[in-house]
Simulated scan of single mutants.
Amino acid sequence: MGKSPAQIRGARLRKAVIDATLARIESVGIGNVRVADVAADAGVHETSIYRRWKTLPRLLLDALLFRMADEIPLPDTGSLRGDLERFMTDLIRFAEAPSGMAMIRGTVIGDADPVVDATRREFWVRRLSMSEEIIRRGIARGEVASTVDPRLTMLTLGGLVHLHVTQLGETLPPNLAREAVDLVLDGIAPR
């Protein structure tokens, strides 16, 4: 006999709710996600979601950070070029998939709800801060000039992909990862 929705606990509950939240973000956009819909899709009670996440914005943030960590992990290949090319390749692969494209578009487009906008901003700030570690490691290894701004570098690379997805709506060029990394590396290498 299967468990009732109220009996779903721990890791299973988290996975079911995160999966349902991500599916909702992809299908209706981040501004239209409602806890009641997520609970129904996940087969859990709304109270279980509120008990664990407290608020919808915290649930949205957790789901988005989980998805990005899973789909676009921060590489540590031992070289700046390797890390940047892997990061860009994973980001491009994610952005080319229909669910990734929907996710990126759903977390970029502005929303009238200030709480959702704050969640969106917090997600991008946290994700960007994590990715800056790639540049900080490059600085520590002497592959990057010590004066280079890690945030500007990662905004340049990631922003390029996001601009293609959200504004240009074009297929991403096949050599984009390598060409973008080459362009940036020329600008941030020690002189």
Rank of each mutant, 00 (worst) to 15 (best):
L155P: 04
S4G: 14
R52G: 04
N175F: 11
V44L: 06
R34M: 11
L61E: 14
G142I: 08
R120D: 02
L183C: 10
G29W: 01
V125P: 00
S131Q: 14
I30C: 09
L80F: 02
L128D: 12
S146A: 15
R9Y: 12
R14C: 00
S99L: 01
R24H: 12
E170Y: 05
A40L: 12
R86F: 07
E170A: 11
I18A: 02
P75E: 07
M88K: 02
I49M: 04
L91M: 15
P173Q: 11
F87G: 01
F66K: 05
A6N: 09
G31N: 01
G138Q: 12
V33F: 02
G31R: 03
L157I: 09
M154T: 06
T171M: 07
L160M: 15
A63F: 02
L183H: 07
R52E: 15
W124C: 03
L64N: 04
E26I: 02
T171H: 10
G43F: 01
K54F: 09
D113K: 08
D70K: 13
L59T: 04
E122P: 01
T147A: 13
G82S: 05
T89I: 03
G159A: 13
P114R: 10
F87H: 14
H45C: 02
L91D: 08
R24T: 03
E170G: 00
R178Y: 09
A42N: 01
I188G: 07
F123I: 07
K15P: 00
D90S: 14
H45Y: 12
R191G: 15
V125N: 10
I188Y: 03
V115P: 01
L163H: 14
Q167F: 12
S48I: 01
G187Y: 09
A11T: 13
A102R: 13
L128Q: 11
A189N: 03
R34L: 12
T166H: 08
I49R: 02
V181K: 04
M103F: 15
E170V: 13
R58F: 01
T107C: 14
V161E: 02
